[in-house]
Design a binder for these strands. Structure first.
Lengths: 114, 114
DNA sequence: TAATCGTTATGATAATTTATCATAACGATT
DNA sequence: AATCGTTATGATAAATTATCATAACGATTA
Protein backbone atom coordinates (compact mmCIF):
# COMPACT_ATOMS: atom_id res chain seq x y z
CA UNK A 1 0.00 0.00 0.00
CA UNK A 2 1.33 3.38 -0.96
CA UNK A 3 0.27 6.90 -0.05
CA UNK A 4 -0.38 9.33 -2.89
CA UNK A 5 -0.76 13.05 -2.99
CA UNK A 6 -1.95 15.65 -5.40
CA UNK A 7 -1.68 19.39 -4.98
CA UNK A 8 -3.21 22.00 -7.21
CA UNK A 9 -4.23 25.62 -7.34
CA UNK A 10 -7.79 26.55 -8.18
CA UNK A 11 -9.27 29.76 -9.49
CA UNK A 12 -13.02 29.99 -9.07
CA UNK A 13 -13.28 26.26 -8.52
CA UNK A 14 -11.29 25.25 -11.59
CA UNK A 15 -7.79 23.81 -11.75
CA UNK A 16 -5.21 26.38 -12.73
CA UNK A 17 -1.99 24.61 -11.80
CA UNK A 18 -1.17 21.08 -10.73
CA UNK A 19 1.78 18.74 -10.50
CA UNK A 20 1.10 17.42 -13.99
CA UNK A 21 0.64 20.90 -15.42
CA UNK A 22 3.90 22.08 -13.91
CA UNK A 23 5.61 19.13 -15.56
CA UNK A 24 4.04 20.12 -18.83
CA UNK A 25 5.22 23.71 -18.57
CA UNK A 26 8.68 22.52 -17.66
CA UNK A 27 8.71 20.29 -20.72
CA UNK A 28 7.73 23.23 -22.91
CA UNK A 29 10.60 25.20 -21.45
CA UNK A 30 13.10 22.39 -22.00
CA UNK A 31 12.02 21.37 -25.50
CA UNK A 32 11.08 24.75 -26.94
CA UNK A 33 7.74 23.63 -28.31
CA UNK A 34 4.33 22.48 -27.20
CA UNK A 35 4.39 19.55 -29.60
CA UNK A 36 7.67 18.18 -28.25
CA UNK A 37 6.43 18.72 -24.72
CA UNK A 38 3.32 16.71 -25.56
CA UNK A 39 5.45 13.80 -26.77
CA UNK A 40 7.49 14.07 -23.60
CA UNK A 41 4.33 13.91 -21.49
CA UNK A 42 2.90 11.05 -23.52
CA UNK A 43 -0.26 12.86 -24.60
CA UNK A 44 -1.51 14.13 -27.95
CA UNK A 45 -0.58 17.68 -28.90
CA UNK A 46 -4.21 18.68 -28.54
CA UNK A 47 -4.25 17.83 -24.86
CA UNK A 48 -1.10 19.77 -24.10
CA UNK A 49 -2.33 22.79 -26.01
CA UNK A 50 -5.70 22.65 -24.29
CA UNK A 51 -4.26 22.39 -20.79
CA UNK A 52 -1.99 25.35 -21.43
CA UNK A 53 -4.87 27.45 -22.62
CA UNK A 54 -6.95 26.40 -19.66
CA UNK A 55 -4.21 27.55 -17.34
CA UNK A 56 -3.84 30.88 -19.08
CA UNK A 57 -7.56 31.43 -19.25
CA UNK A 58 -8.09 30.66 -15.59
CA UNK A 59 -5.11 32.68 -14.44
CA UNK A 60 -5.94 35.53 -16.79
CA UNK A 61 -2.31 35.91 -17.88
CA UNK A 62 -0.01 34.47 -20.49
CA UNK A 63 2.20 31.57 -19.45
CA UNK A 64 3.48 30.43 -22.83
CA UNK A 65 4.68 32.55 -25.73
CA UNK A 66 4.08 30.85 -29.07
CA UNK A 67 5.26 31.48 -32.60
CA UNK A 68 3.83 29.97 -35.75
CA UNK A 69 5.78 29.75 -39.00
CA UNK A 70 9.47 30.27 -39.50
CA UNK A 71 12.09 27.80 -40.66
CA UNK A 72 11.44 25.39 -37.85
CA UNK A 73 7.71 25.93 -37.99
CA UNK A 74 7.51 27.95 -34.84
CA UNK A 75 7.88 27.13 -31.18
CA UNK A 76 6.99 28.04 -27.66
CA UNK A 77 8.68 29.40 -24.55
CA UNK A 78 7.62 30.30 -21.04
CA UNK A 79 6.89 33.76 -19.72
CA UNK A 80 8.77 34.81 -16.58
CA UNK A 81 5.47 34.52 -14.73
CA UNK A 82 5.19 30.85 -15.69
CA UNK A 83 8.68 30.12 -14.41
CA UNK A 84 7.83 31.89 -11.19
CA UNK A 85 4.75 29.75 -10.68
CA UNK A 86 6.71 26.60 -11.49
CA UNK A 87 9.32 27.44 -8.89
CA UNK A 88 6.91 28.26 -6.10
CA UNK A 89 4.56 25.40 -6.83
CA UNK A 90 7.39 22.88 -7.01
CA UNK A 91 8.63 24.00 -3.63
CA UNK A 92 5.24 23.47 -1.98
CA UNK A 93 4.71 20.18 -3.76
CA UNK A 94 8.06 18.75 -2.72
CA UNK A 95 7.63 19.78 0.88
CA UNK A 96 4.23 18.12 1.03
CA UNK A 97 5.61 14.96 -0.54
CA UNK A 98 8.24 14.80 2.17
CA UNK A 99 5.69 15.32 4.93
CA UNK A 100 3.43 12.65 3.50
CA UNK A 101 6.19 10.07 3.40
CA UNK A 102 7.29 10.83 6.93
CA UNK A 103 3.78 10.84 8.36
CA UNK A 104 2.74 7.69 6.54
CA UNK A 105 5.75 5.91 7.97
CA UNK A 106 4.94 7.10 11.45
CA UNK A 107 1.21 6.49 11.42
CA UNK A 108 0.85 3.38 9.29
CA UNK A 109 4.21 1.70 9.68
CA UNK A 110 5.41 2.70 13.14
CA UNK A 111 7.21 -0.56 13.86
CA UNK A 112 9.28 -0.90 10.70
CA UNK A 113 12.83 -2.25 11.24
CA UNK A 114 15.63 0.30 11.00
CA UNK B 1 -6.60 31.56 -5.86
CA UNK B 2 -6.76 28.69 -3.42
CA UNK B 3 -4.53 25.68 -2.84
CA UNK B 4 -6.13 22.25 -2.86
CA UNK B 5 -4.94 18.89 -1.74
CA UNK B 6 -5.96 15.30 -2.11
CA UNK B 7 -4.46 12.35 -0.32
CA UNK B 8 -5.22 8.73 -0.97
CA UNK B 9 -3.90 5.24 -0.44
CA UNK B 10 -3.35 2.97 -3.41
CA UNK B 11 -3.10 -0.78 -3.65
CA UNK B 12 -1.58 -2.00 -6.89
CA UNK B 13 -2.17 1.34 -8.53
CA UNK B 14 -5.83 1.62 -7.59
CA UNK B 15 -7.44 3.91 -5.04
CA UNK B 16 -8.26 2.10 -1.81
CA UNK B 17 -8.88 5.03 0.52
CA UNK B 18 -9.26 8.77 -0.01
CA UNK B 19 -10.63 11.80 1.76
CA UNK B 20 -14.01 11.32 0.10
CA UNK B 21 -14.08 7.63 0.89
CA UNK B 22 -13.28 8.24 4.52
CA UNK B 23 -16.18 10.68 4.64
CA UNK B 24 -18.38 8.00 3.15
CA UNK B 25 -17.35 5.39 5.70
CA UNK B 26 -17.89 7.88 8.48
CA UNK B 27 -21.37 8.59 7.18
CA UNK B 28 -22.14 4.87 7.16
CA UNK B 29 -21.02 4.68 10.75
CA UNK B 30 -23.11 7.66 11.80
CA UNK B 31 -26.29 6.79 9.91
CA UNK B 32 -26.25 3.02 10.22
CA UNK B 33 -26.90 2.37 6.54
CA UNK B 34 -25.29 2.72 3.16
CA UNK B 35 -28.40 4.29 1.70
CA UNK B 36 -28.55 7.05 4.30
CA UNK B 37 -24.81 7.61 3.91
CA UNK B 38 -25.34 8.01 0.17
CA UNK B 39 -27.96 10.70 0.75
CA UNK B 40 -25.59 12.40 3.15
CA UNK B 41 -22.83 12.37 0.54
CA UNK B 42 -25.16 13.56 -2.20
CA UNK B 43 -24.66 10.58 -4.48
CA UNK B 44 -26.95 7.72 -5.58
CA UNK B 45 -26.94 4.60 -3.45
CA UNK B 46 -25.27 2.73 -6.28
CA UNK B 47 -22.20 4.92 -6.13
CA UNK B 48 -21.79 4.55 -2.38
CA UNK B 49 -22.20 0.80 -2.56
CA UNK B 50 -19.76 0.55 -5.43
CA UNK B 51 -17.09 2.62 -3.71
CA UNK B 52 -17.37 0.56 -0.56
CA UNK B 53 -16.96 -2.64 -2.49
CA UNK B 54 -14.01 -1.21 -4.38
CA UNK B 55 -12.33 -0.40 -1.10
CA UNK B 56 -12.96 -3.85 0.33
CA UNK B 57 -11.89 -5.57 -2.83
CA UNK B 58 -8.67 -3.61 -3.09
CA UNK B 59 -7.84 -3.94 0.58
CA UNK B 60 -8.83 -7.59 0.62
CA UNK B 61 -10.72 -7.21 3.88
CA UNK B 62 -14.21 -6.28 5.02
CA UNK B 63 -14.80 -2.69 6.01
CA UNK B 64 -18.59 -2.64 6.22
CA UNK B 65 -20.88 -5.24 7.73
CA UNK B 66 -24.26 -5.28 6.02
CA UNK B 67 -27.58 -6.86 6.83
CA UNK B 68 -30.52 -7.30 4.49
CA UNK B 69 -34.07 -7.80 5.68
CA UNK B 70 -35.46 -7.25 9.13
CA UNK B 71 -38.06 -4.77 10.30
CA UNK B 72 -36.06 -1.76 9.19
CA UNK B 73 -34.94 -3.46 6.01
CA UNK B 74 -31.40 -4.02 7.14
CA UNK B 75 -28.45 -1.72 7.65
CA UNK B 76 -24.70 -1.38 7.74
CA UNK B 77 -21.95 -0.78 10.25
CA UNK B 78 -18.18 -0.49 10.16
CA UNK B 79 -15.69 -3.15 11.09
CA UNK B 80 -13.05 -2.20 13.66
CA UNK B 81 -10.54 -2.26 10.82
CA UNK B 82 -12.48 0.41 8.96
CA UNK B 83 -12.54 2.66 12.01
CA UNK B 84 -8.83 2.16 12.41
CA UNK B 85 -8.16 3.22 8.83
CA UNK B 86 -10.45 6.22 9.23
CA UNK B 87 -8.59 7.37 12.30
CA UNK B 88 -5.12 7.01 10.86
CA UNK B 89 -6.01 8.43 7.48
CA UNK B 90 -7.77 11.43 8.99
CA UNK B 91 -4.73 12.20 11.06
CA UNK B 92 -2.44 12.26 8.02
CA UNK B 93 -4.93 14.20 5.96
CA UNK B 94 -5.41 16.90 8.58
CA UNK B 95 -1.71 17.31 9.10
CA UNK B 96 -1.13 17.74 5.39
CA UNK B 97 -3.94 20.26 5.14
CA UNK B 98 -2.29 22.32 7.85
CA UNK B 99 1.10 22.16 6.17
CA UNK B 100 -0.39 23.16 2.83
CA UNK B 101 -2.09 26.21 4.28
CA UNK B 102 1.03 27.31 6.08
CA UNK B 103 3.33 26.78 3.11
CA UNK B 104 0.99 28.43 0.65
CA UNK B 105 0.86 31.50 2.87
CA UNK B 106 4.61 31.60 3.12
CA UNK B 107 5.45 30.94 -0.51
CA UNK B 108 2.64 32.64 -2.40
CA UNK B 109 1.51 35.31 0.02
CA UNK B 110 4.64 36.23 2.00
CA UNK B 111 3.70 39.90 2.42
CA UNK B 112 0.15 39.52 3.68
CA UNK B 113 -0.83 41.97 6.45
CA UNK B 114 -1.06 40.55 9.96
C1' DT C 1 8.75 35.42 -55.16
C1' DA C 2 6.94 31.04 -54.48
C1' DA C 3 7.77 26.47 -52.19
C1' DT C 4 9.04 24.36 -47.79
C1' DC C 5 8.90 22.90 -43.10
C1' DG C 6 7.46 21.78 -38.43
C1' DT C 7 4.95 24.18 -35.64
C1' DT C 8 0.52 26.31 -33.61
C1' DA C 9 -4.45 26.26 -33.71
C1' DT C 10 -9.00 24.09 -33.77
C1' DG C 11 -13.13 21.35 -35.25
C1' DA C 12 -15.07 16.79 -35.11
C1' DT C 13 -15.22 12.28 -33.33
C1' DA C 14 -14.17 8.29 -30.32
C1' DA C 15 -13.26 6.16 -26.08
C1' DT C 16 -13.40 5.94 -21.34
C1' DT C 17 -15.07 6.93 -17.10
C1' DT C 18 -18.56 8.10 -14.05
C1' DA C 19 -23.26 8.75 -12.61
C1' DT C 20 -28.09 7.63 -12.87
C1' DC C 21 -32.16 4.83 -13.32
C1' DA C 22 -34.78 0.84 -12.43
C1' DT C 23 -35.58 -3.51 -10.30
C1' DA C 24 -34.74 -7.82 -7.80
C1' DA C 25 -33.55 -10.04 -3.40
C1' DC C 26 -33.41 -10.11 1.48
C1' DG C 27 -35.48 -11.51 6.04
C1' DA C 28 -36.81 -10.04 10.91
C1' DT C 29 -41.01 -8.23 12.39
C1' DT C 30 -45.87 -7.97 12.54
C1' DA D 1 -48.07 -14.73 4.67
C1' DA D 2 -47.64 -9.54 4.05
C1' DT D 3 -44.75 -5.57 5.00
C1' DC D 4 -40.90 -2.55 5.09
C1' DG D 5 -36.59 -0.16 4.05
C1' DT D 6 -32.57 -1.91 3.19
C1' DT D 7 -28.80 -4.32 0.33
C1' DA D 8 -27.48 -5.91 -4.20
C1' DT D 9 -26.95 -5.52 -9.18
C1' DG D 10 -27.99 -5.09 -14.24
C1' DA D 11 -28.77 -1.74 -17.80
C1' DT D 12 -28.53 2.80 -19.46
C1' DA D 13 -27.31 7.76 -19.72
C1' DA D 14 -24.40 11.59 -19.11
C1' DA D 15 -20.21 13.82 -18.70
C1' DT D 16 -15.58 13.94 -19.18
C1' DT D 17 -11.44 13.09 -21.44
C1' DA D 18 -8.57 11.60 -25.24
C1' DT D 19 -7.79 10.95 -30.09
C1' DC D 20 -7.94 11.89 -34.98
C1' DA D 21 -7.66 14.83 -38.80
C1' DT D 22 -6.87 19.19 -40.97
C1' DA D 23 -6.21 24.15 -41.57
C1' DA D 24 -3.31 28.21 -40.73
C1' DC D 25 1.03 30.30 -39.91
C1' DG D 26 5.29 32.73 -41.64
C1' DA D 27 10.52 33.08 -41.46
C1' DT D 28 13.68 30.77 -44.25
C1' DT D 29 15.47 29.08 -48.42
C1' DA D 30 16.42 28.46 -53.18
Amino acid sequence: MEPKLNVWLEVEGEVMLSVWRVELLTAVSQTGSISAAAVHMGVPYRIAWQKIHEMESRLGQKLVETQTGGKHGGGASLTPLAQDYIDRFTQISQELDAVLQERFQAIFLPDAPE
